[in-house]
């Protein structure tokens, strides 16, 4: 696990900008929460979790993929999809294509979602990981299309689906198209559910808006990382509109667990094993006689349980 984030040369993007936790000489990492310094090798060994205060640093999609898959097993799908500019959008002197170009340069990714097939200790599965460094992993047409193609391939190949999401929400620059990706991705998951294939959603910091209000929260199992901020409306918006002081720990993963909105919180170093265990249970269930067939499932009285 030590060289986890260095294994795949295609995915060696370092975090950029203010969020970058690495101090200039790359030897020590300063935790933004407890201000403690950690030796960078220990930091990597701890999967970028502060060993002092358990603060989970944000990961790039590449790091996340490396963490959740067997080395060399990830085969990317639909890497060639890139944003169009359907509205001819520009704000503050910057066009949407300019913004996308900047995001590509800064993140090293081509869009805000990376999808593919992979193996987890030998178990095949479909994986979709949001890249927060690309325009806050906002969901536009490409995000939605890549996710739906991944779901359709998962159905064709009878693969379980794991999604790892962090997002600021729907992408403003494709307004109505972005909004409709919520409907499109969730509709595809209804089909995955009819095929009785599981969807395990991992919510990581931060996850808001249209992504929380669509494909992520209709998952069969919802896992969050400790301390992750998750919600529908952002805390500043709520504070401004309600003029109320937000309760302690509002919208943290722990708050959501207490309110019954997620299944469990998994510290990063347990996440991979937790997903593996769940995948085993669903794989076993697929061979059990009690399993309903897709045809029998299409009953009019079904509660939404996909």
């Amino acid at each position: 696990m030590r060289e986890l984030f260095r294994r795949q040369p295609r995915f060696t993007v370092e975090p950029q900008g203010e969020d970058s936790p690495v101090v200039p000489d790359d030897l020590w990492v300063k935790c933004p929460r407890c201000r403690e310094l950690t030796y960078s090798r220990e930091f990597e060994r701890e999967l970028r979790v502060c060993p002092r205060c358990n603060h989970h640093f944000r990961l790039t999609a590449a790091q996340r993929i490396a963490m959740l898959t067997d080395p060399g097993s990830f085969v990317e799908w639909d890497a060639g999809l890139e944003a169009a500019d359907p509205l001819g959008f520009a704000a503050g002197g910057e066009s949407y294509p300019d913004k996308v170009a900047t995001a590509k340069r800064k993140s090293g990714a081509r869009e805000a979602l990376i999808t593919g097939s992979a193996r987890l200790d030998g178990r095949p599965f479909a994986l979709a990981v949001a890249e927060f460094g690309f325009m806050g992993a906002s969901m536009g047409s490409v995000f939605g299309e890549k996710l739906v193609r991944a779901i359709e391939r998962a159905i064709e190949q009878e693969l379980p689906l794991v999604t790892v999401s962090s997002s600021g929400g729907a992408r403003m620059q494709e307004s109505p198209f972005s909004l409709m990706q919520m409907a499109k991705t969730t509709a595809a998951l209804a089909r995955l559910g009819e095929a009785r294939l599981p969807h395990i959603a991992v919510l990581v910091d931060p996850c808001y808006g249209g992504v929380t209000a669509s494909y992520t929260t209709v998952a069969d199992v919802i896992i969050a990382e400790p301390g992750a901020m998750i919600g529908f409306a952002g805390p500043r918006v709520i504070e401004q509109i309600t003029r109320q002081k937000l309760p302690e720990g509002f919208q943290t993963a722990e708050f959501l667990l207490e309110h019954g909105m997620i299944d469990l919180i998994a510290p990063r170093r347990t996440l991979r094993a937790k997903i593996a265990t769940l995948l085993d249970h669903y794989a076993l269930a697929r061979r059990q006689p009690a399993r309903r067939t897709a045809g029998a499932a299409a009953s009019a009285q079904e509660a939404p349980d996909a």
Binding site: A187, T212, S214, V218, F232, I241, T242, A306
Partner: peptide
């Protein structure tokens, strides 16, 4: 949808998502 403390506590996001799922089929 209302942005508010109670709405978040009671799962505004999942309430919307479940409707999208139900309407799809």
């Amino acid at each position: 949808a209302e942005p508010g403390i109670g709405s978040e506590e009671r799962g505004q996001a999942v309430a919307i998502a479940e409707n999208l799922l139900a309407l799809a089929s």
